[in-house]
């Protein structure tokens, strides 16, 4: 449908980025356990727990308004639909113009250059893979996998050596007591 186009266009803009990228991957991927583990490792490098979610994006309320209008369009009867449809397009165009006045492409590029970037972005930009193999670099200095692949597991509930694995999510626990606690609180937290 025509009127859905603006809505979907908006949706791709700012809102998908709000979910932590690794978390999104964890929800989408088939290999959930591994993804959840990666997400957890990634979280160890955060400065604050969940400060990223607080940051406000001014495009947000606009997109919510749009959805409301679409709802009205779909619910109303025929002639109202057409009137509302024109109306919504006009509103949308106006908003787009407003948007374009607020942020030109140049301004956005400038903003992007000034905004602090994550380390991963900088690393990608440095393009260290392109260096010849004898040149030491950040990537080549990493210590690499351990020589013995054995891994000790600790109970996620009490920290003691864990002999059992949760059949649903793969998290370790040491006793039936800890299993109960695990099932009540943490099980499938990442992969539900």
């Amino acid at each position: 449908m025509d009127e859905e186009a603006p809505g979907s266009m908006r949706r791709t803009s700012s809102r998908t980025r709000k979910v932590a990228s690794k978390m999104a991957a964890a929800l989408a991927s088939s290999d959930n356990r591994m993804q959840a583990e990666l997400a957890r490792l990634e979280a160890l490098e955060n400065d604050n727990a969940g400060i990223e979610a607080v940051e406000v994006n001014d495009d947000d309320d606009a997109s919510l308004d749009d959805e409301d209008e679409l709802d009205v369009v779909i619910k109303g009867d025929n002639c109202v639909v057409i009137a509302d449809f024109h109306n919504s397009i006009a509103v949308h165009l106006k908003r787009q113009m407003k948007n374009s006045k607020r942020k030109t492409r140049q301004a956005k590029a400038l903003e992007a250059r000034k905004a602090p970037r994550t380390f991963m972005e900088l690393l990608q930009e440095a393009n260290l893979e392109a260096l010849p193999p004898h040149v030491p670099s950040y990537l080549r200095a990493a210590v690499g996998p351990p020589s013995s692949t054995s891994r000790r597991y600790f109970c996620t509930v009490c920290g003691f050596t864990a002999n059992y694995t949760c059949v649903r999510c793969g998290v370790r626990f040491c006793s039936i007591h800890c299993q109960v606690v695990h099932n009540d609180t943490r099980c499938l937290k990442f992969v539900a």
Partner: peptide, 13 residues
């Protein structure tokens, strides 16, 4: 570090 799920060798190695 392997105990944490990292694929990296420990400090001694």
């Amino acid at each position: 570090p392997a105990d944490l799920g990292m694929n990296q060798a420990g400090l001694a190695e």
